[in-house]
Computed example of a mutant assay.
Amino acid sequence: MAPIRLGFIGLSSTGWASISLAPPLFNPLLASLYSITALCTSSEASAEAAAVKYSKLAGHAIKAYHGDQGFVDIANDPNVDMVAVSIKMPHHVKAVWPAIEAGKDIFIEWTVGSSFEETLKIAEAAKKKGIKVLVGAQATQGAFLKKVKELVESGKIGRILSTSLITTSAYFGSSTTEGGAYLIDINNGANALTIPVGHFLVALSYAIGDFTEISASGIIQHPTVRVLGADGKPTDKTLQKTAHDQVSLSGIVRGQDKNTGAVFATFQVRGGFSLDGERGRGRTVFKWTIDGEDGTIEVQDTKEEGAGGAFIQMGEKRVLLNGEEVKLELGEEDQLGNAGKAWLEFARGGRYVNIDDAVRVHRVLDAAQKSIVEGKKFVLE
């Protein structure tokens, strides 16, 4: 099978795509399945620099595009089969739309659109064109989550009664960088609710089920945010925050399995906490509990395993059954990491998070945001 020729919007020499999404594509397990043939960044200089870097890694020339026109050019490049989009959330629709119109399969980083309406718009357009969509919410590829699903479905803890989550993030607090300033605006759709909760809801849906009733609360504890300079020190500049520092959700989750009927669920995302040094000592970074009539499953992460531990999609986590750690069965493919395994599943037609999954999760997030604003419970179909 010929490799999928990939045009990558947002792949520069530094940043998220260069750290997490692109490296697995050069692994021998994926190198024959994908070939990066083009990339697009915000400026001509950064695009040229990235093209030089990745051409060396790929062993062939990679075309460089830039700016908004680059979204169109990369979509219409005859040497591109699939377009990947990994840029700031407010620009997702603008970046992905030419690829959809060109009938190209797409990868798009979670949260897809900046709202439920935008995500639904992308989903409907993609379906109309008959294209496949790989969504960058990779927790479902984790060996830990597959183990959780196996334990739930095997009846190891009996009928599930409740599930709870506490996760702590250094983001969404009293300071931001120039590049991360978009995170503090609730209208940009990249915040404590949509990112950590959104990724977790993808995992929850896979392992247990989906919310059918939901209530949510949020608080803005730092309405004025300091902007940090390139050296990490505070500048004189401040911005007003409209996105919440901390959010909590509660409600009813229903699954299809005999062991997952109606489950009471509570989640809390705690933002703006230091995870380093004395101030981070003893903090719960990530703790997900599933209580059944006959036992308990717990999923844990700690700051020693990386600050990304607060996010369920970021690497493997510990699984405990009734207090005893369960060994995870890791194979050759696990060297790819969750992002790499998602690329692999897409290429071979396996199980990956698709646009329907994204719409389903965004519907829950939309109800949660409305609940925060309106102060009432929402019942989902």
Rank of each mutant, 00 (worst) to 15 (best):
P90M: 09
V93Q: 04
V93L: 14
K94M: 07
V96C: 13
W97H: 06
P98I: 11
A99Y: 06
A99G: 12
A99Q: 08
A102E: 06
I106K: 01
E109F: 10
W110N: 05
T111F: 08
V112G: 02
S115V: 06
E117H: 05
L120W: 13
K121T: 13
K121N: 10
A123M: 08
E124T: 13
A125D: 01
A126I: 10
A126S: 15
A126E: 04
K129A: 13
G130F: 14
G130V: 14
K132T: 04
V133E: 08
L134Y: 06
G136N: 04
A137R: 05
Q141M: 14
Q141I: 04
Q141E: 15
G142D: 04
G142C: 02
F144Y: 15
K146G: 15
K146C: 08
K146Q: 15
V148R: 02
E150V: 03
V152T: 04
V152N: 09
S154Q: 12
G155W: 08
G158V: 12
R159C: 00
L161Q: 14
L161H: 09
S162N: 13
S162T: 15
I166M: 06
S169H: 12
S175H: 11
S175G: 00
S175R: 05
T176K: 09
E178D: 10
G179K: 14
G180N: 13
I184Q: 07
D185R: 14
N187H: 14
N188R: 09
N191E: 11
A192P: 00
T194I: 02
V197H: 04
V197M: 14
G198H: 10
L201I: 05
L201P: 00
V202N: 04
A203N: 07
D210G: 00
S215H: 09
A216D: 10
I220P: 02
